[in-house]
Design a protein around this nucleic acid. Structure first.
Length: 259
DNA sequence: TATAATGTTAGACT
DNA sequence: AAGTCTAACATTAT
C-alpha cells in the first residue's frame, strides 16, 4: 500500500504527536512481528522516513524501523475505542495510541542500533545525485520500470508512482534501463520529484485502502493519469490507456505517447 | 471460484 | 559470477 508519499504523510503527522513523548506501553498482537525488545520507558528522540521505511529513534539511540509493505496502516487513536480488526501492534503514549493495522501481515517491525544509511543516500527527495542514477542505468538490461522499483537505485518509488513517473516522462515502461538516454533519464528524475512532492501535498493516493494517520483518504488519486485507468483516454493524446503485466505487477501506460 | 492488490526477497535460472 | 526472473509470503475484495 504505502509508497514514499504515504509514508512521508504518516511521518509528518506522527512527529508532533510523539516527539519527546515517553512510551508507556507496547502490545504485540501478532507473533509474526517477533519481539521488539524493551521499549517501555524510552522517549522518542526523532521520527524520520527513509524510502518507504519509518524510523523512530529512541533516547538510547536504538531505532524502531517500521515497514508497512502492502497493506500496513498506522492509525492514531485517542480515547478507549475498541481496536479495529487486524490491529497487530499498539504503542501507547500519554497523548494517545499508535496502532499498526495490517490485514495481509506483511508489515515488519525491527529494533536496531545501526541506521539504514543506504536509503538515506538514495532517497529521491534528498540530495539524490543524477550521476549515480545515470551510472547505474548504464549496465541494466532490465526494464526501466523494474529499475525504478529497485529500492537500492532509488528508495521510495512503488508501483503506482513508477507508472505515473514514466507516463509524465513519456517513456515506455518495457524499455531496458540502458536504452534510456541521458536526457530521458533527466526527464524521469524531474517527473519523479514533481510527482512525489505533489502526492505528498495531497497526503497520498487512495485507490483502495490507504488512509492517513487520522483515517482520512488521500487526494492524489484524482490526479492519476494512467494507474488504474485501463481503457480510459490518455489526458495528453486521447489514446487509450493500456494495462500489461511487467515483472509480475500491473503496469499502466499510454502506448501512443510513451516511447 | 479465480484473480489481483500501493512490497520485498530467497532461491532458481541465465 | 553477476544479473534477472519467479514464487512465496497472508488476506481481502471483486
Amino acid at each position: 500500500m504505502p509508497e514514499l508519499p504515504e509514508v512521508e504523510t504518516l511521518c509528518r503527522q506522527l512527529k508532533p504527536l510523539i516527539l519527546h513523548e515517553q512510551i508507556l506501553c507496547v502490545e504485540i498482537r501478532d507473533c509474526k512481528l517477533g519481539s521488539v525488545g524493551e521499549l517501555v520507558g524510552k522517549e522518542v528522540a526523532s521520527v524520520a522516513r527513509h524510502g518507504k521505511t519509518l524510523e523512530i529513534t529512541l533516547d538510547n539511540d536504538a531505532k524502531l524501523l517500521l515497514h508497512l509493505r502492502m497493506t500496513g496502516r498506522l492509525q492514531w487513536q485517542t480515547g478507549q475505542q475498541v481496536l479495529p480488526p487486524h490491529t497487530r501492534f499498539v504503542m501507547s503514549f500519554s497523548t494517545g495510541k499508535l496502532l499498526l493495522i495490517d490485514p495481509r501481515r506483511f508489515a515488519t517491525l525491527t529494533l536496531t542500533n545501526n541506521g539504514i544509511c543506504e536509503a538515506l543516500i538514495n532517497d529521491p527527495l534528498r540530495d539524490y545525485r543524477i550521476s549515480r542514477f545515470w551510472r547505474l542505468s548504464r549496465k541494466k538490461k532490465l526494464s526501466v520500470k523494474s529499475f525504478l522499483l529497485d529500492q537500492r537505485v532509488i528508495a521510495g518509488i512503488g508501483n503506482i508512482y513508477a507508472c505515473e513517473i514514466l507516463y509524465e516522462a513519456s517513456i515506455d515502461p518495457v524499455r531496458s534501463a540502458c536504452s534510456v538516454s541521458r536526457k530521458e533519464l533527466e526527464r524521469i528524475a524531474a517527473a519523479g520529484k514533481n510527482i512525489l512532492n505533489r502526492a505528498i501535498a495531497c497526503r497520498g493516493t487512495t485507490v483502495s485502502d490507504w488512509r492517513d494517520l487520522f483515517g482520512r483518504e488521500g487526494e492524489y488519486q484524482h490526479e492519476l493519469n494512467v494507474y488504474n485507468r485501463e481503457g480510459l483516454p490518455c489526458p495528453r493524446c486521447q489514446g487509450r490507456i493500456q494495462r500489461m503485466c511487467l515483472s509480475g505487477r500491473g503496469t499502466y501506460f499510454c502506448p501512443s505517447c510513451q516511447k
